[in-house]
Computed example of a mutant assay.
Amino acid sequence: MKLHTILGAKGTITTQLLPVLQQHGEKIRLVSRHPTPVVGVETRSADFLDAEQTRLAVDGSAIVYLLVGLEYSAKVWRRDWPVIMGNVIAACKATQAQLIFLDSLYTYGRVEGAITEATPTRPVSEKGRILVEVEQLLLAERHRGGLPAIIAKASDFYGPGVVEKSWAGTLVFSRLKKKQTPQWLVNARVPRTYTYTPDIGQALYVLAQHPEAFHQTWILPVASPTLTGQEFSALAAEYMQGTGKVKVLPKWLFGLMGLFIPFMKEAREMMYQDENGYVLDSTRFNQTFGFTPTPYAEGIRVTAEWFLRN
């Protein structure tokens, strides 16, 4: 039985991937600095900034999922991401494990039309430039044939249980739960792709099961057509008996709040994704693996029900 190791045991996507692995009877190891014990699952503690701890965390693995989340700070990313990726690459090579790296869209920058696997990387943010450098470490190894690896791309996400790490969770579902007007970033009239977290968990496992998927980059499944912020919020409001109106948060507000709140300062450079629309096209993944993304109506309904219960 193959060992599937998740680096980033407490991450949002780990909570979706873990039950998928369990349903398929896989042998699982969860790794983070302070992993929470899970019945029937091996846990190990490791600091991924330490090469030897990372190697021991990966030892014996067939598939490694890099789902590590760092503090949302370009300074922290610049300091830590290259070290972590270097350590994970070395560990996977030493133990002959295959690697799946869950990445964001920050590397693409401003894009006209839908983002596909063929879209060039042209970052316009500091965090995007950092991730391009991190990806290059992996791509260079991949091109040399030294490591079977996948870069899996996902948009900002929403889903049951996702609150703090999701704009949709914070601004739409959480506010509707409190009987408040939902909010949206910068422009609610343009289409903005959000990826459903259970689809990410399923898709990562699908990739792990297909050797031919390695040495490639994949856009993970997203529903189509993409909703506007107004449409997304209205659907959520319908399921949560809230207002169909939406309050737009202007870009200048993040600049002002950034003077006092570090996170808002960091978030402001990503607002280009919300100004003119940001759309993903997962046709290649869907057709290659026969995958049907969860429709927005269904994903928003399930998410709304979770928020109403919790």
Rank of each mutant, 00 (worst) to 15 (best):
T119S: 05
L139C: 10
A140F: 15
R142W: 09
R144S: 15
A154K: 00
A97D: 07
N87S: 08
D103N: 10
L131F: 03
E141R: 10
N87I: 01
E112K: 05
A149K: 13
P148Q: 14
T95G: 00
A91W: 00
K153Y: 12
R122E: 02
L99E: 10
P148C: 09
V132P: 03
S125V: 00
N87C: 05
S155P: 05
R142A: 10
L102C: 06
K93Q: 13
G128D: 04
L139I: 12
I115H: 04
H143T: 12
L131M: 05
P120K: 07
I115E: 11
E133K: 10
V132E: 07
Q136V: 11
E141I: 12
C92H: 03
A149T: 10
E135I: 11
P120Q: 03
C92W: 02
F101L: 04
S155W: 02
S155C: 05
I89D: 08
P148D: 13
I151A: 08
T121I: 03
A149V: 08
I130S: 09
V132Q: 05
A90I: 04
L147N: 13
L131I: 05
N87H: 08
R142C: 08
L138K: 11
I151F: 09
R122D: 00
E141A: 15
G86L: 13
E117D: 12
G146W: 10
K153V: 15
I150A: 10
K153F: 12
Q96Y: 01
A149Y: 11
E135A: 12
S125E: 00
G128Q: 07
R142N: 11
K93F: 08
L99M: 05
G113V: 04
R129P: 06
A90P: 04
Q96E: 03
R110T: 15
Y106I: 01
T116H: 04
L139F: 04
S104G: 14
I89F: 07
F101M: 02
R142K: 14
A152L: 08
A91I: 01
E126V: 03
L131Q: 07
Q98M: 02
A140N: 15
K153N: 11
T119R: 04
G113C: 07
G109E: 13
D103E: 09
R142S: 13
T107F: 08
R122G: 00
K93M: 11
K127S: 00
I150W: 00
V134W: 07
V134E: 08
G146N: 13
K127T: 01
F101P: 01
V124H: 11
L138F: 10
L131R: 10
A152K: 12
Y106C: 08
E141P: 14
Q96W: 00
N87T: 05
